[in-house]
Design a protein around this nucleic acid. Structure first.
Lengths: 154, 154
DNA sequence: ATCAATGCAAACCGTTTGCATCGGC
DNA sequence: GCCGATGCAAACGGTTTGCATTGAT
């Protein structure tokens, strides 16, 4: 995982636009791009504060929306009432399965799916800019655990 | 559109569970099931108050979550920061295209899409309970208007 | 008469914002 | 030194909740 180069890309992006490359932005971007998880703004804040106390919630939100607008990070709504973000720079597009039991998020990709979406859009004269596909249900683990619980009760 | 029977179904559902069929629930369910639109809780409240002033915001929210839990209504997140709901009882499943310019919501259905989702889930040992697919972009109308604006500026 | 449902207003919670201060450039 | 970025705390907006009252059964 090549965070150093990625961080440099973010820095360059900001500087080119006349934005200041502050210690907070460096830290937030580093932690966000380092993470392989789907983190909430709050979790990102905690992760940053673990490394260095000098970050505020407001700055995390502000930096996060810049990173999102720039396309380095992507927000997704998992139905918990708050957004989660994922590292997107240098990763290819994928969709998500969200386990409604344990909250696990599984990434998957299916080109046929993407193509069908394009076809459906074309039929309506609609031009897709982005899309969001989430499958909600039970992950493999939770299904197995549920089954064994049922077994026990028999 | 057969609201009377649908309303009776909701009433029966509630009564069977020992819930009281109040004037507020009758009104809210009627208005919600009458609507062909994707309404927010607030809009539903206004629609109800137009017909009868005796409904509170709290009751709209409480009734809405019952209707959703019962499967008469379905909530979807269009990315506006608030949920929208749609009449689902007696309608077959569909997905949505959301115009990021005018907010228009287009319903569409593609069986091949659904099948690919099942295949992708099976590959992960995931059992789908529900899913959410939204295409964000520009609707036909907005595309045409945008084009003519460009034309004008030339 | 009972107890669930309602209305009100306050609480909630994630997120945004105004403003004085700080710090990159 | 300038002006953009930060921190703080207050504001925001959708939604939920505690509690006294109302009303369906």
């Amino acid at each position: 995982m090549g965070e150093p180069q990625e961080l440099a890309i973010v820095e360059r992006f900001m500087r080119e636009r006349g934005m200041r490359w502050t210690t907070q932005r460096t830290l937030i971007a580093k932690v966000a791009l380092d993470s392989h998880a789907h983190f909430s703004a709050d979790e990102l804040l905690s992760m940053c504060q673990q490394e260095d106390a000098d970050v505020s919630r407001a700055t995390v939100y502000r930096t996060l929306s810049m990173l999102e607008a720039a396309g380095f990070v992507e927000g997704l709504d998992t139905g918990e009432g708050k957004r989660r973000f994922e590292h997107v720079l240098g990763h290819c597009h994928h969709d998500h399965m969200v386990c409604t039991n344990c909250g696990k998020i599984i990434e998957f990709r299916d080109d046929a799916l993407e193509k069908r979406q394009e076809i459906a859009a074309k039929a309506e004269g609609f031009q897709i800019e982005s899309h969001s596909l989430k499958l909600f249900g039970r992950c493999k683990n939770c299904r197995e655990n549920t089954l064994s619980e049922v077994d026990k009760s028999l």
